[in-house]
Design a protein around this nucleic acid. Structure first.
Ligand SMILES: [Mn+2]
Ligand SMILES: [Mn+2]
Ligand SMILES: [Zn+2]
Ligand SMILES: [Zn+2]
Lengths: 137, 137
DNA sequence: TCTAGGATTTGGACTCTGTCTAACTCTACG
DNA sequence: CGTAGAGTTAGACAGAGTCCAAATCCTAGA
């Protein structure tokens, strides 16, 4: 898929068992058309820049619904807010601590080896690798 | 160092350029004697279980001071609160999402290879590897 | 077309983590 | 002692996120 339209979004939502409403389509479009990491607050701003007024409650409801349905993923790097990631494939993150910029690191070439066996009765939900960087002094 | 006493703590604080006050010693002792990952709230509870009353402001002030001075490290795995880690050496984390339990993974045997070069003018602050696990269904 | 009922959205109250401030306390030193 | 600077404190405040009951939207029948 090269370009994302709102119609695409309705499709995408349906394939994830999500009833495509106006608000949900706008929120999905905000995330997928930019393929950027956005906070709930940023999503809210973007979505309300154009036509539809969408409430804070709906933004959070929807992001949590998307998470549940596996449409997006959350990235926890900043103690003050969660980032939502439209890229659910395996990849890692580079976090610029000064600016708060969060970018992807392709998983292809990165190898993580030697992790100990999991405790009995546990299974992996995910492995997060975050490289924190700052401007050189 | 095998066993931690409050006197040890005063020593430790001094070596990190921290004036050892009553409250600071108690907070350091809470963290270092258990060598566990604690939230600010847990620190507050532990410290106030015994004698000294320590205020919320002081708990936060002190944890942030310890961070600044490199005495402890923060671990960001849970969107709702920060964990403070008395182990500042290189190591990774196993996070049990159901229970919120956070345990260490020794860095010794873990190799992370193939990370891309950093953008120009950037330096690494740290690399966080978090293995998220849950009870098998 | 009309309507009832479930799904969705909404404002606003609320909770929780963390910060800030201005007053208070402690202590080291003259 | 008396003072000044460092540290502590209560409580107000801020921001992210949740909750709730009421309002609105949609759609499947009649
Ligand atoms: Mn998916
Ligand atoms: Mn140190
Ligand atoms: Zn990403
Ligand atoms: Zn640790």
């Amino acid at each position: 898929m090269i370009h994302y339209s709102r119609d695409n979004m309705a499709e995408l939502l349906r394939t994830h068992d999500i009833n495509p409403t106006h608000q949900r389509i706008e929120i999905a479009y905000a995330l997928f058309s930019r393929h950027e990491h956005l906070s709930a607050d940023q999503v809210m701003t973007i979505v309300n820049d154009r036509h539809a007024e969408t409430s804070k409650a709906t933004v959070y409801n929807t992001l949590n619904l998307f998470l549940e349905k596996g449409l997006i993923r959350e990235v926890i790097v900043d103690p003050s807010k969660v980032f939502y990631d439209p890229n659910t494939g395996p990849h890692h993150h580079l976090y610029e601590v000064d600016s708060g910029r969060l970018t992807d690191i392709a998983a292809d070439d990165v190898r993580i080896e030697g992790l100990p066996a999991l405790p009995k009765g546990m299974e992996t939900v995910g492995i997060d690798l975050i490289v924190r960087v700052k401007r050189t002094a």
